[in-house]
Nucleic acid binder design. Structure first.
Length: 557
DNA sequence: CTACTTGGGTAGAGTACACCATAGTGTAC
C-alpha cells in the first residue's frame, strides 16, 4: 500500500529530474501540478485509479495518471527509472538547496563532476565553483551557507512530523503490554515548534527484563543504563524506565525540562515520595508551571499574571479567520470551508483570499472581490452563519496595501501580509510593515516575520517595533498555525502580551483538512501562556463585530 | 505534459531581484 505523500514526492522528483535535463517547461510543470493536485485531493484517489478515472482530478491527465496508477499497483515507476538512469542519487539531494535550482545544478554537475551535496560543498570551499561561467564569489559563499544550514536543520523535524512519529512510538510501546503507564515527555510535552529528540517515560515492574524486551520492539535500539535509545527514525527516541510511581513522576518532570528551566529552579531538590508533578513545585515553594511553559523565557516575564497557564483550547475558538478558497489558491469552495468550520464549532468566518498583487496565488482583483462578496452573503444565508468578506491583502514595498482606500471599505476584515520583496533592510522592512499597521483598515498582520521553519529565515525586521505599533493601533498579531510557520514566534508573544496586544490564531487554511492545523497554533500560544481574552478568534459574535468597527465603520449588516 | 476545444491544434503566471557580467538568466514568491 503506497502512501499519498510518496506518490506526490515521486511526481515532484520526476519534475525536478526533467528540469535538470532541460525538458519542455510545460511538461515539467505538468508533473509538478499533478503532484499538487493529488496532494490537495481529499477523496479516494485509489478508487479513482482502480477505475481509470484519475483524470477526473483537475491537473492529472493521461501520462501523470498512468504514473500514479503504476505506482499504486507496483510501488515503482518505469518513467522514473528511465529518466534517473545515469544521474547519481546525490544530485537529487541538491534540489532541496535553496538558492540553486535544477538548471544551475545541471551546469555545475557537468562542469565539476561532483556527485553529492558534500562534493558541491567541497567545490565551494576550494573556490572551484566561482570559476564556472555564470557563477561567482557571492553564489559560492551563499551556497556554502545554505548547505551548512541545511545540514544543521536536518537534526530537527517540525512539530506535526514529531507528533506523528511520537504517536507511532507510543502505539508500539502501549500495544506491547509491557507497561503500566507510557507518557510522552521532552520537547513534545513542551509543545516545541521544532523537535530534535523524542522522550518517553514508562512505568513497569522489573526494569532490566523489560528493557531487554523493549529493545526487541525496535530494529536499532540499545540500552544506556535505565533508558533506551532508539535510532529507527529520523530523530533519536529516548525511553526512560521507572519502577515506582515516585520515580515515574520524577523522570517525567526531569525529562520534560527544559534544561535551562530546571537549572533555574534547582531541580535537585525533588522530593523522594511523589504522587504528581505539582508536589515538586510546592516542595520548592513555586507556583505550578504548565509543562509547555517550562522554558528559560518563563523567568524573563516580569508581570506575574502573564505566567499563568493558558486557558486556550479548540472549544474556545469561535471565529475561523484568514482562510483561503478555490477563488485564489485554496482547494475548496467558500461553502465547503465554512460548512466544515461549522462542524468544528466555529460560529463566524472571514474568508481571506489573496489580493490582486499575489498573481502567483491567483489573487483577486476588485471585480472578483465584488463577486465574492455576493457569495459570502449567499453562503451566510444558506448556512445560517456569519461569513464576513475578508482579504489577505499584500503589503506592497512601500507599506501601502494593494487596494485603494476607497476600495478597502468593501471589506469587513483585513489581514495584511508581506508576500514579496523579502530582502529589504531591517529599517525599510520595519517601516513598511508599520505603515500597513497604521492603515486604519488593517485588522491583523499575517505571519509577521514570514519565516518558514527549518527552511527560510524570517525577513529582517524589528519585531518589537512592529508589536508596539500593533498594540498602539489595536491591530491583532497573527499566530499563524501552519506548522511550517508558527509565526509570530511564541518567544515574542510574551513581549506582545506585556504591551496589551490582540492576537489572532489562524491555520491560514487552503483546504478543509488544513483547518485542523489550528491546534499547532494553539500549542505554541499555550507556550506563551496566552489567554482566550487576548485572542480575537475567541470573541463572541458581538465582540468580534465591535472589534471590526473599532476604527472604521464596517457596513456589514 | 494538461486543459480546452475541437475532432487536430494551441496556450500555458507574472514579476522582482540577485548575480554575473556589463545583457541576460535563474530562482523564488
Amino acid at each position: 500500500m503506497s502512501e499519498k505523500s510518496e506518490i506526490v514526492d515521486l511526481l515532484e522528483s520526476i519534475a525536478s529530474i526533467l528540469e535538470f535535463k532541460g525538458e519542455n517547461p510545460f511538461k515539467i510543470s505538468a508533473f509538478r501540478n499533478a503532484g499538487n493536485a493529488l496532494r490537495r485531493y481529499e477523496g479516494d484517489y485509489e478508487a479513482l485509479a482502480a477505475e481509470g478515472k484519475l483524470n477526473e482530478i483537475k491537473g492529472i491527465g493521461k501520462e501523470t495518471g498512468r504514473v500514479i496508477t503504476e505506482f499504486i499497483r507496483t510501488g515503482d515507476s518505469t518513467l522514473y527509472k528511465e529518466i534517473i538512469t545515469g544521474i547519481p542519487p546525490g544530485v537529487l539531494d541538491m534540489f532541496s538547496i535553496r538558492g540553486i535550482g535544477p538548471k544551475k545544478i545541471s551546469v555545475l554537475y557537468n562542469e565539476l563532476k561532483f556527485e553529492s551535496v558534500n562534493g558541491l560543498a567541497e567545490a565551494c570551499r576550494k573556490g572551484e565553483l566561482a570559476k564556472v561561467k555564470g557563477f561567482g564569489e557571492k553564489t559560492q559563499a551563499k551556497l556554502l551557507e545554505e548547505i551548512s544550514k541545511m545540514e544543521y536543520n536536518r537534526q530537527f523535524v517540525l512539530m506535526h512530523q514529531a507528533e506523528r512519529l511520537s504517536d507511532k512510538v507510543r502505539d508500539i510501546l502501549k500495544s506491547s503490554g509491557f507497561f503500566d503507564e507510557v507518557s510522552v515527555s521532552g520537547e513534545i510535552r513542551r509543545n516545541m515548534e521544532v523537535v530534535k529528540e523524542l522522550k518517553f517515560v514508562v512505568f513497569c515492574a522489573g526494569i532490566s527484563e523489560t528493557v531487554a524486551k523493549t529493545i526487541s520492539l525496535f530494529v536499532n535500539a540499545i540500552s544506556e543504563g535505565e533508558k533506551i535509545v532508539v535510532r529507527d527514525f529520523s530523530i533519536p527516541v529516548y525511553i526512560h524506565f521507572s519502577e515506582s510511581q515516585s520515580s515515574f513522576v520524577k523522570q517525567l518532570f526531569l525529562t520534560t525540562g527544559s534544561e535551562e528551566f530546571l537549572k533555574n529552579i534547582k531541580a535537585t531538590e525533588v522530593p523522594e515520595k511523589l504522587e504528581e508533578e505539582k508536589e515538586i513545585f510546592s516542595h520548592i515553594k513555586m507556583e505550578f508551571v504548565a509543562p509547555e511553559m517550562r522554558e528559560k523565557e518563563y523567568f524573563d516575564i516580569t508581570a506575574k499574571e502573564l505566567r499563568k497557564s493558558s486557558d486556550l483550547e479548540q472549544e474556545k475558538l469561535n471565529g475561523l479567520l484568514h482562510f483561503h478558497t478555490s477563488a485564489s489558491d485554496g482547494n475548496n469552495s467558500l461553502e465547503e470551508m465554512a460548512g466544515y468550520g461549522i462542524t468544528k464549532g466555529y460560529s463566524y468566518f472571514a474568508v481571506c483570499d489573496h489580493s490582486k498583487n499575489a498573481a502567483y496565488a491567483n489573487g483577486l482583483n476588485e471585480e472578483r472581490i465584488l463577486k465574492q462578496k455576493e457569495l459570502t452573503r449567499a453562503v451566510s444565508e444558506k448556512l445560517k452563519t456569519k461569513v464576513y468578506q475578508g482579504i489577505e491583502c499584500d503589503i506592497l514595498t512601500d507599506g501601502a496595501l494593494d487596494f485603494s482606500d476607497d476600495f478597502l471599505t468593501v471589506f469587513d476584515f483585513i489581514v495584511a501580509s508581506v508576500h514579496s520583496q523579502f530582502n529589504l533592510s531591517e529599517n525599510d522592512m520595519t517601516a513598511r510593515i508599520i505603515r500597513a499597521v497604521e492603515n486604519p483598515f488593517t485588522d491583523a498582520i499575517g505571519h509577521p516575520t514570514g519565516r518558514l521553519l527549518l527552511a527560510r529565515d524570517g525577513y529582517k525586521v524589528n519585531i518589537k517595533k512592529i508589536i508596539d505599533a500593533c498594540a498602539a493601533n489595536s491591530v491583532a498579531i497573527e499566530i499563524n498555525a501552519n506548522p511550517h510557520r508558527l509565526d509570530l514566534d511564541w518567544r515574542n508573544v510574551f513581549y506582545a502580551r506585556e504591551k496589551g496586544a490582540f492576537f489572532t490564531i489562524n491555520a491560514d487554511a487552503h483546504s478543509l483538512s488544513d483547518i485542523d492545523l489550528t491546534r499547532y497554533g494553539l500549542a505554541v500560544a499555550r507556550k506563551a501562556g496566552l489567554q482566550s481574552s487576548e485572542v480575537i478568534n475567541c470573541f463572541s459574535n458581538e465582540e468580534f463585530y465591535k472589534f471590526l468597527n473599532r476604527k472604521v465603520k464596517r457596513i456589514y449588516k
